[in-house]
Structure formats: C-alpha cells, structure tokens
Design a protein around this nucleic acid. Structure first.
Lengths: 205, 205
DNA sequence: TAGATTGTTAATCGATTAACAATC
DNA sequence: TAGATTGTTAATCGATTAACAATC
C-alpha cells in the first residue's frame, strides 16, 4: 500500500529520519507535530503530514506524532534494517572520502569494498575497506552480495564502469561522474555532479 | 528576459553544457538537433527546445542548433566567464577530494582555499590550495572575494559554519552536511546528502 | 467543552508533454 | 516542393497548498 509514493516525497524521507534522530532523547520530544517538523525543515506542514502518511505511522490529533514510532516507521519505509551492500568504483579522492565516511550505516548500507585500476592502491585498505582490482569487480560484487554501487571514476570511464556493474548484478547506481550513463530502465540511477551544483548556485546570484 | 527560468530548467543547463562540450570537434557535430540532445540525455525533445530557448540561442529549422553558439550561449547563461571564487570549510576527506578536483574551473569557479580547525592541516596545502584556520574565515573570504562556499564539516558544526560564512559575505552555499542549515532567504543553499541518496536508491529496489 | 492537531478532499501551481503552425 | 526541425500554444500531469471535517 505504499509503493506509489511520489518521487519527491521519497526524497524527503531521509531528511525526516535524520532530523528526528537528532532530537534530544530527554523526553521533550516524545511527540512532535507536523508543524514543528515543517518549521525545522523549511517545508509546508500539510506536505509533512502527507509524506508521513506514507510511512503508515499515525499521528494523534492534539499531540502530534510519537517520535520513536515515527522513526521506526521511517526506518521501515527506507528498509534500514535489511542490510545492503554497496561497492565503490574509483578509489581516488572522492571514492576514498566516501570509504572513510561512516554515514551510510545509518541507512543500513555497508560499503563493502572499492575497485580501482591503480596498482599502487590495489591491495591496500581505505577506511578499513579493501581496494580490489577492476578485474575482480564481477566476483567482488557477487561475493559481497552488493546491489548498490557508487561510480567515482572519471567521466570517460563511467559508461564502461556502469556496464560492468550491471553485469555484476548491481541494481542501483549513484553516479558522481559528470556524464549521463546509459542503463536499462530496470537500473535506478541518481546523478550527483558537484561542480554543476556549484555552477547552478553561482548563476542564481 | 531570462531570470524567470524554471528551477528545473536551470538545473539542466550544466548537463547540456557538459554534453555539448564532450562532442568531438571533427565537424560531425557543427549542428545538433534537440532530438539528438534529448536522446543522449534521456529527456523529451520539446523540453530540450524549451530549455535551450532560455539561453537565447536560436536553432534553425531543418538543421538544428549551431553547437559552438549553443555552448557560448550556455556559458553565458551560466556566467562561466565571470570568474568567481569559492571556499571550502572542512578539509576532511570530502573537502580534500574537492580541493583536488579540477572540474569547477569548467564553470568559471575557482576554489580559493579551505578552512579547518585541525592544527595538523592548517598551513598545509591540498590540491595546491592553502588550508587556513577557521579564525581567518572572515578575512580569507574577503581577501579572495569569495561569494560561494562549500560546507564539508560534520553536521554538528554546519549551522555555525553557515553563520560565519554569511557574515563573511558568502551568498550561496553547497551543503554536504546531513542537516538543514538555517539562513536568510537571500542566501541560496543546495544540500547534497550522499548517504541519503544511496538510501533512496536502496528503497527504490 | 474548546482548542489543537491530524488526515482528506478540492484547488492551485508549476513542469512536462502533445499538437501544430512556421520555417528553412 | 517536400521533409525535417524549430518554436509556440494548449493540454496533461504531478506536486504542493488551501480548506475543512474528524478527533482526541
């Protein structure tokens, strides 16, 4: 009863979860209203109620939403408790930074390993994760049961990388290369182009 | 005549520019049709024509858009030729990776320096850019004439960092901290939460 | 009870797509 | 000329907001 959630509502789910998790546990926020959430996040309060309705967590008139339950419902919605493995292709600056970043675990995602073609990196560990040769991408993904991947290679290698990942059974890709990657429709892709975002900001001034 | 461009069209502008720049210069692509662009980028062709109309570059029926002119028009639209300075706060993994990344220059943006509070980093250079102490954020931003900033600090320090940046005259912020930062309406903010994006992908499976 | 807050239905708004006339 | 492609106007679609009834 929830998979027809609008794209934009889905994108806000982690924002709600993040926010609710940061609230102090001292009892002040056992219940929180849609209005309070809306204000904290700069959203409309009706929008917040609509979004939260997708989680199945019911709010109580006059008191708001029980925070603990709401967090659980969001975690459930985002499948935080099924642990999932992700791999990174490209152990350059960005790839290394992500390997060292601990934030993925908040969403039940484990970064299993990285792949690179630089002999100086292969065999080392970064952030405690092994760097494997690109040649082992297929078996590496399978070994870890990875369904998610992050592409952090130069633009020129992105398409080819995507194809390898898809062959290895990856179902969703976060692409940091500033180029459109071509995949079948069954593969989910989100593109993040940091420089483009900064350019957008600059042109809004 | 162009500042009422829809938000979503603006977001696609760097994508068009990127794509057109990657085409070979061998004369094959002196003209390119909206249909060809649309197909390459997975967009509708009418949408492409509407977006490109904002740049002021006219296409020619039967031949398409002159590529060189279109690139110039996009560069112009995105103000690539006015050079702008950006600073990074937080020279951790992500901050360092961005300091080493050369892609900002394609949009006329120069990363001037980074700020950090780690004595081991202060005084060093990363990617050829100096790492200055947070105490010097205000004078550093002014010295470089920076109007753009990237927040790459832990979530707990993000709000405070944003306030320092705004005091230092920064007008637009790219925020990598997974937390909502509160700024006045005149400050433009784009949030990028990498872990949240991976979580969204995971929940789409 | 009165008041605050939820949840739902209808209206609005903005973005995308479809239809089609204009043009080279 | 005929055909391909642009550019524009109208229709559709989806997301957000407004209005309001339900509820504790």
């Amino acid at each position: 009863m929830n998979r027809e959630i609008p794209e934009f509502s889905l994108q806000r789910m982690p924002v709600y979860l993040n926010y609710l998790r940061t609230l102090p546990d001292d009892g002040t926020y056992n219940y929180i209203s849609s209005g309070a959430i809306a204000q904290a996040l700069g959203l409309g309060e009706v929008l917040v109620r609509k979004d939260l309705a997708y989680t199945g967590c019911a709010g109580r008139p006059k008191v708001g939403y029980p925070r603990a339950e709401l967090i659980s419902a969001l975690e459930n919605f985002l499948c935080v408790n099924d642990s999932k493995s992700a791999v990174i292709v490209g152990a350059g600056g960005l790839g290394s930074a992500l390997l060292c970043y601990g934030g993925f675990s908040h969403y039940g995602i484990e970064l299993a390993c990285a792949f690179d073609n630089d002999p100086a990196k292969i065999g080392t560990t970064i952030g405690g994760k092994p760097v494997l040769p690109i040649d082992e991408l297929n078996e590496g993904c399978k070994k870890y049961g990875a369904t998610l991947a992050i592409i952090a290679v130069p633009a020129s290698a992105a398409q080819q990388t995507a194809e390898l990942l898809i062959k290895a059974g990856i179902k969703a890709i976060l692409n940091f290369a500033p180029v459109q990657i071509n995949t079948g429709d069954e593969i989910k892709v989100i593109n993040i182009d940091v420089a483009a975002n900064l350019a957008i900001l600059a042109s809004m001034l």
